[in-house]
Nucleic acid binder design. Structure first.
Length: 593
RNA sequence: GUCCCAGUAGCUCAGCUGGAUAGAGCAACGGACUUCUAAUCCGUAGGUCACAGGUUCGAAUCCUGUCUGGGAUACCA
């Protein structure tokens, strides 16, 4: 915490104003944001739609249905604060040149109540709106008052959404791919939380099946080896040193008492012991990475509780299975998948796929309206059949959204490091945090979109740690805290919000910063809609940049009390935005650097 | 073979599902600390958006091919 915090009035979220909407898969249209930016945008859109109607009545334009136009913020400032493409979309239905349509619209525009200074028609037919320069300052008091809740929007309407991520095999340590999934999943969950969803973070524990069988045999072999017996870790087993380490611990605790116990029984004990230890380590690592789950869901439970049998029965009863060569097949081809898929093997044991179907059935049974999975690219072939299975069970396949995250390729000393659990060669999450730090690692992973391949150069990440963009953002926050420390040292105090004259902020750097701060709610809603935390990382980087520019050009604490007060409100609002964004991205916001 | 992802500045990547003159960060070059933190700022330079067609007022973005890189194509998980 910085020495001062402005607390003022209620921190109430504004009510729903009609504005931006977005669709959530499998869910109805949901009302979204209500920010100053959004109010103006929707005000302009409404005025334009009205103008089109008036023009139709007066005959200056043919009567046509209002096309789905947008009011957007132009990339170039010269093109105004907002711009509409309505006239260009009218070209075809109204059989009019876009610029002529624009003229007819502008003639009918009624902009009362909006801070519009002038309207221009430009380019191929854009209608550009130029606002009074300081219109955006009205956002600042709200930001300061709302504090931690600024940026929260009610786009989700409390819908229950589950984000399942990492779900690594609990047979080893977490590697770089898991780390990326952890950073991504956690940020997406936070983003959805800010966007007004009821979010559950979940980790699926693969504590059953073939892998566990291999795991058990590997543990057993290590145990025997440690006791000087002849034994070999099976080829498809786990060869990592960590497995041997685990069994050394086991040996210390239980000695050689399992030497004479029959194989399947002692393997069960060993698996139970090792899984508990591994899972604890995974929890600990993720916790240190800033990732905390609401639910740790066991695959074994699905088998024991009869969920797998239930899912298979439901598929069978609805005619989506058939038997062939002793195995039970799911008719995946009916759902556009290339080939059918085995759910129960010839030996009677259900496949991993069967358990996964049961797992997703259970998710929907628990009432989630939106189910998000984050999978590595190596699982992408699994997507269509999983969606098919969901549909076969009678659920909406669009309510299941699977984010395919491209794999991480690790470079060390200019060479690719191959990652494999079985050979035990990989860089762990722990090592990563040790080498580059938690904040840098999380920011690095979340900076890039999920579907872009990620080359992670360890040496570079270490060597460049001071140039890492995360420090750039954190530094902006630290600078603001420093200003507030200075203020306190000089015996200054923060002004009450009511007494501040924000209109004193008319420098370009001040207005540009304020403008950017006003975007956060829109930004959150948009990033949440697209499940794209990397855009928020970009946004916060821009906020930091604008703060740095402002900081270098102007002083906050000056002899001019009124100006100082106004600028304090500006930087405190900036700090709110920086901290809220960093919070969503799982990065800390230190006061001093 | 089929399917998925990617191809944008020297490098790493954005580009918000079709908008106006394609943007950042590193790296390069030239400037700015007697003042709230220089982990910063200001400026310069850098492009055939892989390639060829198509769709339309308008394409890096959409559709069809081709090329390159990665991944997936198990009664593994």
């Amino acid at each position: 915490m910085c020495p001062h915090t402005l607390v003022h009035g209620n921190t109430r979220l504004p009510g729903g104003t009609p504005g931006a909407y977005f669709l959530v898969p499998g869910v109805r249209r949901i009302e979204a944001v209500s920010s100053i930016v959004d109010k103006i945008r929707s005000g302009l859109a409404e005025a334009l739609a009205e103008a089109l109607k008036s023009a139709g009545l007066k005959g200056s334009l043919p009567v046509v249905e209002t096309p789905a136009f947008v009011v957007e913020v132009p990339r170039e400032k010269e093109n105004g604060d907002f711009a509409a493409n309505l006239a260009m979309l009218l070209a075809k239905p109204a059989r009019t040149a876009p610029r002529k349509a624009a003229e007819a619209l502008v003639a009918e525009l009624d902009l009362k109540g909006l801070p519009v200074e002038r309207v221009e028609i430009a380019g191929p037919g854009f209608i550009n709106f130029y606002l009074r320069p300081n219109w955006v300052l009205a956002a600042l008091p709200d930001i300061v008052k709302m504090g931690q809740s600024y940026g929260r929007v009610n786009a989700g309407g409390g819908k229950k959404v589950q984000v399942e991520f990492v779900s690594a095999n609990p047979t080893g340590l977490l590697h770089m791919g898991n780390a990326r999934g952890a950073a991504l999943g956690d940020s997406i969950a936070s983003l959805l939380d800010y966007a007004g969803f009821d979010v559950t973070r979940e980790f699926y524990i693969n504590d059953a099946g073939n892998q566990i069988e291999h795991f058990g045999r590997s543990l057993e072999a290590r145990y025997l080896q440690l006791l000087g017996r002849q034994a070999e870790v099976p080829e498809e087993g786990y060869h990592g040193e960590d497995i041997a380490e685990t069994m050394r611990g086991f040996l210390e605790k239980y000695g050689d008492r399992y030497l004479e116990v029959a194989s399947p029984a002692r393997r069960e004990v060993m698996v139970k012991y090792a899984l508990a230890e591994k899972l604890e380590a995974i929890k600990k690592s993720l916790g240190e990475f800033g990732v905390n789950y609401d639910v740790w869901f066991s695959e074994l439970y699905l088998h024991n509780a009869g969920k797998v049998a239930e899912a298979i029965k439901r598929l069978r009863d609805s005619g989506y299975t058939y038997e062939y060569e002793d195995a039970l097949w799911f008719k995946a081809r009916e759902f556009g998948v290339e080939k059918d898929e085995v759910v129960v093997r010839g030996n009677g044991i259900p496949t991993y796929f069967a358990a996964d179907i049961a797992y997703h059935m259970d998710k929907f049974q628990r009432g989630f309206q939106w189910v998000i999975n984050i999978w590595g690219a190596d699982h992408h072939g699994h997507v269509p059949r999983m969606k098919g299975a969901v549909k076969a069970l009678g659920y909406d396949p669009d309510a299941l959204q699977i984010i395919i995250m491209q794999l991480v390729r690790l470079y060390k000393s200019g060479e690719i490091v191959r990652m494999s659990k079985r050979t035990g060669q990989f860089v762990t999450l722990e090592e990563l945090m040790e080498e580059v730090g938690r904040d840098a690692a999380r920011y690095f992973f979340v900076m890039r979109s999920a579907d872009s391949h990620l080359d992670f150069d360890l040496d570079l990440a270490k060597a460049q740690s001071n140039d890492n963009p995360v420090y750039y953002v954190q530094y902006a926050n630290a600078r603001i805290c420093s200003i507030l420390r200075q203020l306190a040292e000089q015996g200054g105090s923060l002004p009450g919000l009511d007494g501040v004259d924000l209109s004193l902020l008319n420098e370009e750097a001040e207005l540009a910063l304020a403008r950017k701060l006003a975007d956060l709610p829109d930004e959150v809603a948009s990033c949440a809609k697209d499940l794209a935390p990397h855009r928020l990382a970009r946004y916060v980087h821009e906020v930091a940049g604008l703060l740095h520019s402002f900081y270098n050009a102007h002083r906050v604490i000056t002899d001019d009390v009124a100006l100082t007060g106004a600028r304090l409100v500006l930087v405190i609002a900036t700090r709110v935005v920086l901290q809220n964004c960093l919070n969503i991205l799982g990065v800390s916001a230190p006061e001093k650097m």
